[in-house]
Design a protein around this nucleic acid. Structure first.
Length: 460
RNA sequence: GUCCCGUUCGUCUAGCCAGGCCUAGGACACCGGGUUUUCAUCCCGGCAACAGGGGUUCGAAUCCCCUACGGGAUGCCA
């Protein structure tokens, strides 16, 4: 282990936002890259909105993305507890330190942190009233992404609320000190707060950590302006879980939001990402989220999967829709999926794409029907195909034999190629005008099913 | 209002720190063509950017300044 200690300190809200996920990922990547320690600390100081379920969403999302933590909930560690709600004594002790140093005062029941400097009163436009301000010495924030940022705090701020609970700024700094955090990697929305934090670090006589403020993730311009919110499509990790995205793909895509390896690589194994990752290569400007790119990365992963793994991910998608029972034959499942994997860009689209392999109760595409029915008498054509394929015995039911049967059919009708019968046959057996490669599809569908469905159409 | 951060194709970005190798590279999306009897795959091609203005320099996407625009903060939320 190196000396690097980073933390992801989310507040459980019931959602796992993509921006939080990226912050978690970047911290995790940095820890893994440096062989350091990744701490998960739960900032549940806001009792009102922290629930058991909210925490579960978060932990589940972290595990799904493969972001394992070295210290934190469920795994423990030497710097616990890792829930801020359980660290009251530590906060109290630190409060006493500030109090003893004369850096606090009470007002309206709340404890304020007292800034150092000359005091004056000024009308504040934003607050719309006269407030007491302080001329402090500017604070230098050492940011690994932006260089040195200079800012000064000009108003005392609350560190303990009137109900006795500590505030974010206070616990954040106390915990970073107590947990010996060396690098604070977080969203840029915290950059302005950082001067408060540095003041606190100084008041505690602690050296501030190395900061790194990540650019924000903004909405897709088609969805509006500003930073991405939990209401925006694609903003929640839960959504990708529900839509059967591959976790590794989502992780890869998120890593590319504000970071890249410096060359043209995009689809990378996690080991490659860890090896290449460095804070200094993180983008300064905000990124706009692009659904299409996410889908593309997911497809690249899907395509590259061995069919066994593909089936492992696909099976629940099909059982969820009631298309196959839990114990459905692995062998047959893989034969079907092998036809789909190269054609389809998301697992989500699978049920619609291949449902007819598993049930006779599939949806018939009206447009496909119209297209096919225009090309001649469907019943007659279906009958001809049925007759031709009946000549292929079940033990010979293969793409090759089927091709031969179709060719003979063509010859028998004075055609050079059997292409005349194919679209109709596809429609007859699947209700669609497109799908997997034709002959292999018939092979996998099986003799019985193909003849039955052709029979149905030939009598229609 | 004030403070802070940012700004390369529609989008993600390479290049910027160490100025010439940039007629600015890649990817997504889009458009066109092709393959595939189907097709959402695949292949080929195309479109398209240094926010604007000043400087510094023989030379600037790269360095400096200003403006504009975008974002964030300014909470007894985190």
């Amino acid at each position: 282990m190196s000396e690097v200690r980073v933390r992801f300190a989310p507040s459980p809200t019931g959602f796992f936002h993509i921006g939080s996920a990226r912050t978690a990922l970047f911290n995790w990547l940095y820890a893994r890259h440096t062989n350091g320690t990744f701490v998960l600390r739960i900032e549940d100081t806001d009792a009102a909105r922290n629930t058991e379920e909210a925490l579960e969403v978060l932990l589940k999302g972290m595990r799904w993305l493969g972001l394992d933590w070295d210290e934190g909930p469920e795994v423990g560690g030497d710097y616990g507890p890792y829930f801020q709600s359980q660290r009251g004594d530590i906060y109290q002790e630190h409060l006493e330190k500030l109090r003893a140093a004369g850096r606090t005062y009470e007002q309206d029941g709340a404890v304020f942190f007292k800034l150092d400097g000359e005091r004056y009163t000024e009308f504040d436009e934003y607050l719309g009233k006269e407030v007491e301000k302080v001329r402090t010495a500017p604070v230098e924030i050492d940011d690994a992404i932006r260089g040195t940022v200079v800012r000064s705090e000009d108003r005392d701020f609350v560190i303990f609320r009137s109900d006795g609970s500590p505030t974010f700024h206070f616990v954040n700094v106390v915990d970073d000190i107590a947990m010996k955090i060396t690098h604070v990697i977080r969203g840029e929305d915290h950059l302005s707060n950082t001067s408060k934090h540095v003041e606190l670090f100084k008041a505690f006589g602690a050296r501030p950590p190395q900061f790194a403020h990540l650019p924000l993730i903004l909405k897709d311009p088609r969805m509006g302006k500003g930073k991405m919110s939990k209401r925006d499509r694609g903003s929640l990790i839960e959504e990708y879980q529900d839509r059967h995205y591959l976790p590794a793909a989502v992780r890869n895509a998120i890593a590319l939001l504000g970071w890249n390896p410096g060359d043209n690589r995009e689809i990378m194994e996690i080991g490659e990402i860890i090896a290449a990752f460095d804070i200094k290569d993180i983008q300064k400007g905000a990124a706009r989220f692009d659904e299409d790119k996410m889908a593309h990365v997911n497809f690249q992963y899907l395509k590259a999967l061995p069919v066994e793994t593909y089936a492992w991910f696909a099976r629940p998608v099909l059982t969820e829709k009631g298309l196959i029972p839990e114990n459905y034959s692995e062998d047959h499942l893989q034969r079907v999926l092998a036809l789909c994997q190269e054609k389809i860009t998301s697992l989500e689209a699978l049920p619609e794409f291949c449902g007819y392999f598993f049930t006779d109760d599939y949806t018939v595409d009206e447009k496909a029907r119209n297209k096919v029915f225009k090309k001649g008498d469907p019943a007659e054509l279906a009958g001809q195909v049925k007759e031709a394929l009946e000549g292929v015995p079940v033990e010979n039911w293969s793409a090759e034999s089927l091709e031969a049967a179709f060719n003979s059919l063509a010859v028998a009708h004075g055609q050079e190629k059997p292409f005349k019968w194919w679209p109709l046959t596809r429609f007859a057996v699947s209700g669609l005008s497109s799908g997997p490669d034709f002959l292999p599809m018939l092979e996998v569908l099986g003799r019985k099913t193909v003849l039955r469905r052709l029979g149905k159409l030939s009598q229609a």
